[in-house]
C-alpha cells in the first residue's frame, strides 16, 4: 500500500547510496545499501581489514571502532549511519607501523596478544578508556574492557598492558583491587 502512494521514491529507500566518511583522517566515499553492516563496509568496501568480526551480535568486541570519538561495535551499526562520521580503526592508532603508540608497545611487551584477533578491539577500547581516565585502577580496566572477549590470553596480560601504558600501578587513589 505504501508503495502505491509514493511509487519509486519508495524504492530509493532500499537502494545503495553514497556514504562519505572520514576514516583515520582520510575521506572515503563508497556505495552501500541500507542493510550493509558498518563492519562489512569498513572491511570490504574500504578494504581496511584490521577491524575484525567475531560474533556479529555485539558480544565479542573484536569489531570495536571509534565512532565520532566514542567506542562502538561496528557490527551493530549500518554503513548508512556512518555518513558524515569520523571513524578511527586500529589502522589509525599508530602514526605508522614503525611508530606505535605507547599502548601498542605495552601490549607487545606484556604479551597481551597471542593470535591477535581480538587485539584491534582491545586497543580501541583501551584507547577510549585511557583518554577518559588516564590512570585507571586494575578494577576500572577490567570493568571498562569486560565487553571485549579474548579466547587466547586469559586477559591478565591485557590488564597489565593497559596499566603499563597508563603509567599506573593499578592501585589508583585508594588501593583499587581485583574485584
Amino acid at each position: 500500500m505504501a508503495e502505491m502512494r509514493t511509487g519509486h521514491l519508495e524504492d530509493a529507500l532500499f537502494e545503495a547510496r553514497e556514504i562519505a566518511c572520514t576514516v583515520n583522517g582520510k575521506l572515503y566515499r563508497a556505495m552501500a545499501e541500507p542493510r550493509r553492516l558498518l563492519s562489512d563496509f569498513i572491511r570490504e568496501d574500504l578494504d581496511l581489514k584490521g577491524t575484525h568480526v567475531g560474533c556479529e551480535h555485539g558480544v565479542c568486541g573484536a569489531c570495536t571502532i571509534l565512532f565520532n570519538g566514542q567506542p562502538a561495535r561496528s557490527c551493530l551499526m549500518f554503513a548508512v549511519q556512518a555518513d558524515g562520521a569520523e571513524i578511527v580503526t586500529v589502522e589509525g592508532l599508530a602514526r605508522s607501523p614503525q611508530q606505535l603508540t605507547r599502548l601498542q608497545e605495552s601490549f607487545s611487551q606484556e604479551h597481551a596478544l597471542q593470535c591477535g584477533y581480538c587485539t584491534p578491539g582491545m586497543l580501541i577500547s583501551a584507547t577510549a578508556l585511557l583518554s577518559e581516565n588516564p590512570s585507571p585502577t586494575d578494577s576500572e580496566v577490567r570493568h571498562a574492557m569486560a565487553g571485549q572477549l579474548c579466547r587466547c590470553t586469559g586477559y591478565e596480560q591485557i590488564v597489565r598492558a593497559v596499566l603499563a601504558a597508563a603509567d599506573s600501578d593499578g592501585k589508583g587513589g585508594e588501593g583499587g583491587n581485583h574485584a
Binding site: 567506542p71 551499526m77 571498562a144 565487553g147 571485549q148
Partner: peptide
C-alpha cells in the same frame, strides 16, 4: 547494563 562500549551507544 552490558558493558561500557554497549552503553556508549
Amino acid at each position: 547494563v552490558g558493558h561500557p562500549v554497549i552503553r556508549q551507544r
